[in-house]
């Protein structure tokens, strides 16, 4: 006798809400909750079973698999990645790429190089946790070890979240519903509070505030970017984040990076923005499909970063005044 499928349905669906969603998706009419799943299915007409698109034993099997899967997802929520190590392969000419770089949680690594030099390929290698099986021959270690096959293939263990520039929203939901949907999948304890936090953080990152009721498809480029960064920092399952450029478009890049770092993420950014590139701990220089250098941000560069930030703030201020309909006539005061 199987404990689960012989439980009264009302008990079963109370303990495992996923089961009631599944049964509802089969399109049966409301069952009598005192019956067990097995008995209930036995007394349904064969015709109804055929309509549901699964046979009885398949439904029973599905319910048991579903319960196990949801339990596994809950366990996996706490998987941790402390470091990622990149071991070089070869460049486009087939010459060796003699580097080994480790990045720990909470660190930012920038990737710089001319267009077409192989930055995307590097991001792709990280994305699929390459094991010498991509054209570059690179290998990626997780916590210092070759990742288990499961890590690479299983959807739920997806280590890497990717924020790319050419993404769209397919659903038409408000920002609140959208993040709420994500929070539900991530099985967080207090989904509503989490949603509020993500949206507040996003608003913190962007000059143009938006309300939780705004439809995600109505958000501006900057607002979208801010929302995705806040979501990935606070809610995403993936400990590693790949970002291909955070454009200027109304996102506070400094705060965005701080948010990702406090979320203990391992962050890779492909960028030429000095504010981002010099804020990272190190930067990888790519040429000809290969890594040619790894620069650690120096003390002098950090000092320069302060000046560049001041210049940027001046520009931001001008932009803000333009937005408010003011004139820009007095001579611009560049910081020293």
């Amino acid at each position: 006798m199987n404990p689960v499928i012989d439980l009264p349905l009302e008990r079963l669906t109370l303990d495992h809400p996923c089961v009631s969603d599944f049964l509802a998706s089969l399109g049966f009419s409301e069952p009598d909750g005192r019956q067990s799943l097995r008995h209930w299915l036995d007394q349904l007409a064969d015709e109804d079973i055929l309509d549901a698109g699964m046979e009885r034993h398949q439904i029973l099997d599905h319910v048991q698999r579903l319960i196990r899967e949801v339990q596994r997802m809950e366990q996996d929520r706490h998987a941790r990645v402390d470091s990622l190590t990149l071991i070089g392969g070869r460049n486009k000419q087939g010459e060796p790429e003699p580097v080994e770089i480790s990045v720990r949680a909470g660190q930012i690594l920038c990737i710089v190089g001319p267009t077409g030099s192989g930055k995307s390929r590097l991001l792709a290698d990280i994305e699929c946790l390459a094991q010498g099986d991509t054209p570059t021959g690179r290998r990626i270690l997780v916590n210092g070890q070759t990742p288990a096959g499961d890590f690479r293939h299983a959807l739920d263990r997806k280590l890497v979240a990717q924020l790319s520039q050419n993404m769209n929203f397919v659903v038409d939901l408000s920002a609140r519903e959208f993040i709420g949907m994500h929070a539900q999948c991530r099985m967080v304890n207090e989904p509503q509070a989490m949603v509020e936090r993500v949206i507040a953080c996003a608003n913190d990152l962007t000059g143009e505030k938006f309300s939780p009721e705004t439809s995600v498809t109505q958000l501006s480029g900057g607002q979208t970017r801010a929302l995705m960064i806040a979501d990935v920092a606070l809610l995403s399952a993936s400990p590693v984040v790949l970002i291909d450029e955070i454009e200027n478009a109304g996102v506070d890049r400094q705060r965005a990076l701080e948010l990702l770092v406090t979320g203990e993420k391992i962050v890779f950014i492909s960028t030429h923005d000095p504010l981002l590139a010099l804020r990272g701990d190190r930067r990888i220089v790519i040429r000809n499909g290969g890594i040619v250098d790894v620069l650690t941000t120096s003390a002098l560069e950090r000092e320069n970063l302060n000046r560049i930030e001041a210049v940027d703030a001046t520009l931001m201020n001008i932009r803000d005044r333009l937005r408010r309909g003011l004139r820009i006539e007095e001579p611009v005061q560049w910081p020293q």
Partner: peptide, 14 residues
């Protein structure tokens, strides 16, 4: 979007 990727994967698993 990254959110929809994660949600989609979750729904496939269910």
């Amino acid at each position: 979007s990254q959110v929809e990727r994660e949600v989609f994967a979750y729904k496939v698993r269910l």
